[in-house]
Design a protein around this nucleic acid. Structure first.
Lengths: 220, 220
DNA sequence: CAGTCAGCTTGACATACATCAACGATTCGT
DNA sequence: ACGAATCGTTGATGTATGTCAAGCTGACTG
């Protein structure tokens, strides 16, 4: 089960130890809330299938989407700072999770240097991704942002052994817009535009990348 | 020395152990480059005085500022993912640093659970700050972004026991603009505007917050 | 199976900010 | 201490993207 939930390079011995602390979580339905802001951090979660979004609420109570979580992702790192989750996390579709008790994880990471490094590596990777995204959003046009978003999804699916050419956008256009700092209308317009240019084939939630090379070029 | 470089709650015993591995680094002058992209990650650095900026170069070779580092900050976490620094880091003024060998830190963190937690906490905090900033930049006007930037600096200075009311902007207007995704001209215009409204008193690099309440209101 | 509603698309118009340009103010190096 | 370069300010103009409005489509529900 550990290999399903934490698909990283660990020795068989380490995997076995991990298995003893990882639990299966009940499946979530679309719109189910996994984590509420301010909740004590008792578990990290690993996505087995499905997807989720994390968001915070600003002073006016409107959603600010921080991240989308795909199969293989770990959820909850932002709460390590003070033992409280710092955002809401909600399922975008039917979703299966593993649940990893923080306390056991901490104990185990004392014994296993490999696990310790792995955890740091995952966090470091998230940090880097987040900072890169910042740069991307700051200095790019709407088209570049969206192209970049789709490339990033494609890459993440590929890393998990799923199709990088065609996939389902489980989030709404509004979610994408919110995440990229663009309006729904702009997302919609650019998707049709990319389709007209032969870069994508879009059919509702389904996206096929018909010209990966040009998409990559647009994303830079 | 450890207390200077890593001003976190650690026991005297832990502090003493840390002291044995922390080294003083030669002072940097303005524009000196501390870290080059792709360099192997041998040390983490802690800022004792002065300030630095981290940036990456996009495909056209132009700078994307990722972060500013103030006294008390730790530099280098984004490199843990694969043992390579993922950005350039350059001094904005004369700057004093401590240098912490990664290898010793790793060994030490196996012994000291408190240190391990502290490291995770720092990274988690950075992750949270970075994701919050993302939300801020995406959904706010130029004025709100700049107000937020100045509030954030103010808070960070306060945490380090420095004045939160007046401080020096060691980075150029262009740096601020780059970081916030705005043009130099916009930064300049909004600074004069905030001054006219009596929120700030700006004199070249020196900023005094004359109406913290209104600044906070603008930043939200 | 029909009605409803959330999600998506498309068009017309408004605006915040970028860009271009010129000039003033500091800082830096010799 | 001087000249040169970098940095900062201000004004005029352009444009990408937001906002408003209307209609369309697909999905869930009773």
């Amino acid at each position: 089960m550990a290999t399903l939930c934490l698909p990283y390079q660990l020795s068989p011995e380490q995997t076995e130890k991990l298995d003893t602390i990882i639990q299966r979580h009940r499946p979530l339905q679309k719109r189910d809330v996994l984590i509420e802001n301010g909740e004590p951090l008792k578990f990290l979660y690993a996505v087995r299938s499905g997807s989720l979004k994390s968001y915070s609420l600003d002073s006016h109570g409107s959603e600010q989407i921080i991240d989308f979580h795909l199969p293989g992702d770990l959820i909850g790192f932002d709460g390590l700072i003070d033992g409280q989750h710092r955002s809401f996390t909600q399922a975008l579709e039917t979703t299966m999770l593993c649940e990893i008790p923080m306390q056991s994880l901490d104990q185990l990471s004392a014994e296993l240097p490999g696990l310790r490094k792995q955890l740091l590596r995952v966090m470091s990777g998230e940090l880097h991704a987040s900072k890169t995204l910042l740069g991307t959003l700051n200095h790019h046009t709407a088209q570049q942002r969206l192209a970049n978003f789709i490339m990033t999804l494609s890459n993440r699916f590929q890393q998990r052994g799923l199709s990088s050419r065609s996939f389902r956008l489980s989030m709404t256009r509004a979610d994408i817009g919110n995440y990229l700092g663009l309006s729904v209308e702009t997302i919609s317009r650019i998707l049709t535009q990319l389709q007209q240019e032969g870069v994508l084939a879009v059919q509702n939630k389904l996206v096929e990348i018909t010209d990966p090379e040009r998409l990559r070029a647009l994303a830079s």
